[in-house]
């Protein structure tokens, strides 16, 4: 079974040379730590920077330089700052090649819910709705089940949606799954995880091939 860093490490393998990548808050942020030196990638943060660098060393924090999670960051050589309308022109205009974000629920039709639990938690969607509506390539990074042990991969989302029919790949602590033809398709299993365990933890229809390779991470 993978921990959060393991999920991030597996997603980092999906990133290709020359891509602009938007990483959401939480597990997705960790993806930046696992990009191989051999490829050139620029990270976009929707609050207004392209070419985001690592967190600053102690004492170098700048209150004017943060990421979408409001964390202090640094800028790489060649970085650029811009306003929010320009930032979402990059996103809506499909100039960003990969979006990685977290989710509370994902469905077999590629719907995603991650912004609201009615009556309990209303934080808002931030940039998530813009991102999922326009990105060609969306990877969801999340735990396979919630804290109560219930599957987050469902026949249909029960929570208010963030976007419809947009998620094509999900990477969890248990598996890599693709979404197509109204079902989850098991692509890889995490080290130490059986196919049976993944089947048990997936509430939506799951297509399991004869051979399910183990992730190489």
């Amino acid at each position: 079974m993978l921990d959060k860093n393991g999920i991030a490490k597996r997603i980092a393998q999906e990133v290709r040379n020359g891509w602009y990548v938007n990483l959401g808050i939480g597990i997705p942020t960790l993806v930046a730590n696992h990009i191989p030196e051999s490829i050139d990638v620029e990270f976009q943060s929707e609050n207004g920077i392209l070419g985001m660098g690592p967190f600053p060393v102690d004492g170098e924090e700048d209150s004017d330089l943060i990421n979408a999670g409001k964390q202090t960051i640094t800028a790489m050589p060649g970085a650029v700052y811009f306003d929010s309308a320009t930032s979402f022109a990059m996103i809506r205009g499909r100039h960003v090649q990969l979006t990685v974000l977290g989710a509370m629920e994902v469905s077999t039709s590629g719907d995603i819910a991650n912004w609201k639990i009615p009556g309990k938690m209303v934080k808002g969607m931030g940039g998530a709705m813009d991102l999922v509506a326009s990105a060609d390539n969306i990877i969801v990074a999340m735990m396979h089940t919630n804290r109560a042990g219930a599957s987050k991969l469902l026949p249909a989302c029960s929570l208010p949606l963030t976007g419809v029919g947009c998620v094509k790949r999900v990477v969890t602590n248990l598996a890599v799954l693709d979404i197509k033809d109204g079902a989850f398709h098991l692509v890889e299993r995490a080290p130490g995880v059986s196919v049976e365990e993944i089947v048990q933890s997936t509430a939506g229809d799951l297509v399991v091939p004869d051979e399910v390779p183990k992730m190489s991470i």
Binding site: F55, V57, E61, K70, Q71, T72
Partner: peptide, 12 residues
């Protein structure tokens, strides 16, 4: 004041 909401640093 320019308060920082999520002060995050890396270890040098």
């Amino acid at each position: 004041e320019k308060r920082i909401e999520q002060r995050t640093v890396r270890h040098a």
